[in-house]
């Protein structure tokens, strides 16, 4: 399976902002946050279609989210995920003694998800990560 080394940024999006105001358990939130924006050419190179599942891995973990073609390219090698529980499965917890983890500029790898791998909805994600529901 083909993999690509990229830099992962995370942050706010207007859809994430609106989604969270619909409620963290809402479909709007899920759809706006469990995604990863990727450069169009990078998606093509990996053979991933807009809206297909993509696997993002870092040394801290890996997560399946929906790939989204970036409309503000070109930015080869840079992927973007909105704030939320999905990005935090792969975010860098190191604070360098400042209190602040490293949410931006994380070394990551992306690859197409296999047919068995799906994007977990919030409650399944929490169950898997924390063993509670």
């Amino acid at each position: 399976m083909q993999k690509m080394k990229v830099t992962l940024l995370s942050g706010r999006t207007i859809n994430q902002g609106t989604g969270k105001e619909h409620g963290k358990t809402s479909q709007e939130y899920y759809e706006s946050v469990a995604i990863c924006e990727v450069d169009t050419n990078d998606l093509d190179a990996l053979g991933i279609k807009d809206g297909a599942n993509i696997k993002v891995s870092t040394e801290f973990g890996s997560i399946i989210v929906k790939a989204k073609e970036s409309i503000r390219g070109p930015h080869p090698g840079i992927i973007y995920m909105p704030y939320g529980p999905w990005i935090n499965a792969v975010a860098n917890p190191t604070t360098h003694s400042t209190g602040m983890p490293s949410f931006k500029g994380i070394h990551a790898e992306i690859e197409p998800a296999t047919s068995a791998e799906r994007v977990l909805p919030l409650h399944e994600l929490l169950k898997q990560a924390f063993g509670k529901e």
Binding site: K24, F60, G61, Y83, G84, P85, N88, A89, A91, N92, P93, P101, L126, A129, F130, K132
Partner: peptide
């Protein structure tokens, strides 16, 4: 606030 959603995984796990 929602640290389980917004903290890195290891921190959230120890919180929970």
């Amino acid at each position: 606030s929602d640290p389980v959603a917004n903290f890195p995984r290891v921190a959230a796990q120890n919180l929970v």
